[in-house]
């Protein structure tokens, strides 16, 4: 079971390692995570969604300091989770690192870094991806 879960996480590595989203070739809307169909153009966009690498810069829309984690995140507790609005338009959820809760505010400018995300207890598989730090 855990081996298959590993495959499931590996499948998304391109987006998680490089913040790769996509862009609708019809209306230009940028999506993260990448979507198979544009939410505005629907079927018109099929086959016209283009890969789009995001700059990884944006600002904090809201955040929380998590004290009760899910399994795999125990050693990181407490950790900051933030909703970040990327400069290209889409918002995403990520951890904030290299800062304390006093350094994060709604509106704080941030940029992405590549870090360990968590590990799966049973298999010991470690997952990597993006986190954010204040500018």
């Amino acid at each position: 079971m855990s081996g298959l879960a590993g495959v499931r996480f590996w499948r998304e590595t391109k987006s998680r390692y490089n913040l790769t989203g996509n862009r609708c070739g019809v209306c230009g809307t940028v999506f993260f995570p990448p979507r198979p169909v544009c939410t505005r153009c629907h079927r018109e966009s099929i086959g016209r969604m283009e890969e789009h690498k995001l700059k990884g810069t944006g600002e904090v829309l809201t955040w929380t300091f998590v004290h009760e984690p899910r399994p795999g995140f125990e050693i990181q507790v407490p950790y900051i989770l933030a909703m970040v609005r990327l400069d290209e338009g889409p918002a995403l959820l990520a951890q904030m690192v290299d800062c304390g809760p006093g350094e994060v505010r709604i509106g704080t400018r941030v940029h992405s870094v590549f870090r360990k995300i968590g590990e799966e207890g049973k298999s010991g598989v470690i997952y990597y991806g993006y986190k954010f730090v204040p500018d």
Binding site: F9, P33, V66, E68, P69, R70, F73, Q76, Y79, L81, L92, L93, A94, Q95, I117, G118, Y127, G129
Partner: peptide, 8 residues
């Protein structure tokens, strides 16, 4: 895209 990053 949410739980993976530590969301509850």
């Amino acid at each position: 895209w949410e739980s993976f990053f530590g969301a509850t």
